[in-house]
Each structure stands twice: as C-alpha cells, then as structure tokens.
Design a protein around this nucleic acid. Structure first.
Lengths: 203, 203
DNA sequence: CCATTTTATGAACTAGAATTCACGAATCAA
DNA sequence: TTGATTCGTGAATTCTAGTTCATAAAATGG
C-alpha cells in the first residue's frame, strides 16, 4: 500500500490526503454540500483552497471523494460488525447500538448518506451512485445476518430476509434523520427497540 | 374562512395566496431550499419576485409558509386516513399504500419534510419547528391507530404502541428517502410489506 | 548546477442569486 | 375628483462563493 512514495518527480505534498479527507468529511457532514464553503474547509483542514482543488478537483469531486471515504470507513466497519462471528441477533443489536452511540454523542450529525440523499436526491448522479452502491452492500450484509439468524431460530422466519433487510435500513435511516432534526436520541431508541423486539422469535 | 375579502383599503392582489403557495411548494419540493431560485419561482407561479417578497416575506419566510401548507394539506389528509372508521390495521395498510402511490407516481420527490430535514437538519429552527410539530401529530395518530388495533387483536400487543408508532414513521421516512435517491419504488414496497407483516398478529 | 515537474500561495475574476429601490397601477374613502 | 393605501413591475445593487491566473517554492534527474 505505501510503496512508491519516494520516486515522485516534483515537489512532495505536505499533507496526508486521507487525513485531509477525514477533516473535510466532518465539515460536509455538519453543514451539507451546498452550505459548505471553501472558507470552512480551509479553516478545518489547514490547507488553502487551491491546494484542495489541485489535489482533489473542484467542489463536487472533493465531495465525491469524501463520500467514498465515508463508505470505506464508517459504513464498512458497520458491515464488519454485522459479519462478526457469534449470534446474528446479537450482531444486529450491537450494530444498532453503535448507531445509537453516534446519535447520543453528536445528535445533530446524523448519517452523511442520509443527509446527502435528502439534500440532493438523485439530482447529482455521481453522488447518488456512491451512496447507492454502499447502501446495497449494507443491505446485503443485513440480509446475510438476518438469514443466519433465521437459520438459527433467533429471528422470525415467516418474513423474507431481503424485505427485513430493507426495513432495517429504512428504520435506521429514518430514525437517524429524525433524531438529527429534533436533536433528541429518544426517537431512534424507540424505533430500534421496537424493530429488534419485532424480529425476535417469541418463546 | 373566506370572510373579510372586500374591505381592504388599497389595490387588491391579483392572485390567490393558497394557489401560489401550492405552486411554490412543488418547486421547493423538487429542488430543495438552497437550489430553489426566484427565477424558478417566477416561472412556476407566474408572479414576479417582488410580489412574492411583498406577500410572503423573504425566501425563508416563504419556505416556512410552504412547510405549513404541506403540513396542512399532505400530512393532515394522511392523518385523517389513519383516523378513518373501520379496521385499524386496514387503515395502516391504506396509509402506507397512499405513500407508495406517491412514490410510484413521482419517485424523485419523496417527502418534503424528509428532504428538508436532510438538507438543513436543525440549523434552521424555524423550519425544524414546523416539521417537528407536524411529525408529532403524525406520531400520535399512528400510536392511536396502533393502540386501537392492539385492542381489537389485529396488531401484536407485546410491544409498546408508542415505540411502534415511531418505528412506523422511521420506516416511512427512510423508505421514502431511499426510493427517491434510487428512483426505484421497490425499496419502499419491501420495507412496508415487511413492517405490516411484522406487526400483524399471527394466527 | 540547470531543467523539469509537482506543489503551495496570494490575488483576481466571474457568475449567480437574494435583496432593495423607485415608479406606475388599481382600488377605496371622503 | 383627490388622497391614501396596497399591489405589480423592472432595474439596480450588493454580496457571497467557486473558479482561475500568475508566481514562488521544493523536490528529482542528468
């Protein structure tokens, strides 16, 4: 991964792109795409706007890189939590719990993909595509975990796992959205609690 | 409602505010708050920008009026569907069906409140308040319907109705968001189908 | 040491959009 | 008819924000 870091011809860049991307992500996450200005990005990253443009392209290209960074960090670790060994139902509970932790820590941030989908919808295909692809991966991970839970008898098996997976994502997205808008984590807590109780097999 | 329309001192306005508000709502609904320009609003409403400013105030005030109009029309008819006489479960199904119809007809619109929450979150309290209040009304309507269904034995009663109501809203919001982003109604169809199947009592 | 290439910086440019100004038009009261 | 009040219209204004230009700095290769 870290090869070919020496033989560059010109002046070496003085920053780590991943680190800068992470900082930029926070700015976009807090403010959305339209309301984020280069002045904010300069403030947070410490770079001048032209350096950002040079390294990542214009504002849209930068945001696209940010979305990919979000998918590779946030969403993928979430997927790994779902794929952990052990009880599938427990994995689901832990996944929702980690969402709740985010909501409790900084309730006004929500999910970057949810916020972006709400702000821009399908109007910017380059953004929508990144989000769509990552969401499908997440959906598959949910489905796989749910199917495993159904096979083990932990999760109700009278309902199609693919439908349940989509419902899980819908609940997560909706709850994060509402919690962000209201600044109150209790909405997400209620919704998640109800969902987990519903899919558990009765005994 | 339509009293006191004659005794105005000056020149009478040449348009119906409600009609104009409905047209403006469509523009904001399609484009979001930031991306909507006065040029678009002029195009759609037929009014000049200064007439809009004079009648409704600046852009934020206009959008606030639009949000209230949305609550009074769209959301309130939805609530009435939930409150209809007859089977509570059937009312729930009909309510979700009417959401689906919207998604199928114009899949890229979604819900104005969801889109706005995603775009602006809590940064504009005057917007967030209108949305929050309307959402609470909707939540109460869901809860009431669910409680009635539980009393009649149609709906599973081992889970708190308040939690279920929040989950219903989360599913609706999330599914509308995703369907808008992808342009595909099938996500909402799956999520709704799973939710309705889950809350129905097994027999 | 010189040519080349890439990066950093400051300033200028440009476009778009919300707001405001000034004036004409329409209605009512007296 | 006149004055007061509100509404409609077109243009000007002002400001913000993304993009681009020109130049300096720092590395590599021969």
């Amino acid at each position: 991964m870290s090869r070919a870091a020496k033989e560059a011809p010109g002046r070496p860049r003085e920053f780590d792109p991943e680190t800068v991307l992470a900082k930029a992500m926070d700015v976009f996450w807090d403010n959305g795409f339209a309301k984020t200005t280069y002045a904010m990005l300069e403030q947070e990253t410490g770079l001048r706007r032209q350096s950002l443009v040079y390294a990542f392209g214009d504002k849209k290209a930068l945001f696209q890189a940010v979305l990919r960074h979000y998918a590779q960090t946030r969403v993928n670790v979430f997927i790994q939590e779902l794929n952990a060994p052990g009880s599938p139902l427990a994995n689901l509970e832990r996944a929702f719990d980690s969402w709740l932790e985010d909501v409790r820590r900084e309730s006004t941030s929500g999910c970057l993909f949810v916020n972006t989908s709400g702000e821009l919808g399908p109007t910017e295909p380059s953004f929508a595509q990144v989000i769509e692809q990552s969401t499908q991966h997440l959906c598959q991970a949910f489905q796989k975990t749910i199917e495993a839970g159904q096979a083990q008898g932990e999760i109700i098996s009278t309902i199609d796992a693919a439908d349940l997976a989509k419902q899980a994502i819908a609940v997560g997205d909706g709850a994060l959205l509402r919690s962000r808008a209201s600044g109150d984590p209790s909405f997400a807590e209620s919704a998640f609690r109800a969902f987990l109780a519903l899919i558990r097999t009765r005994d």
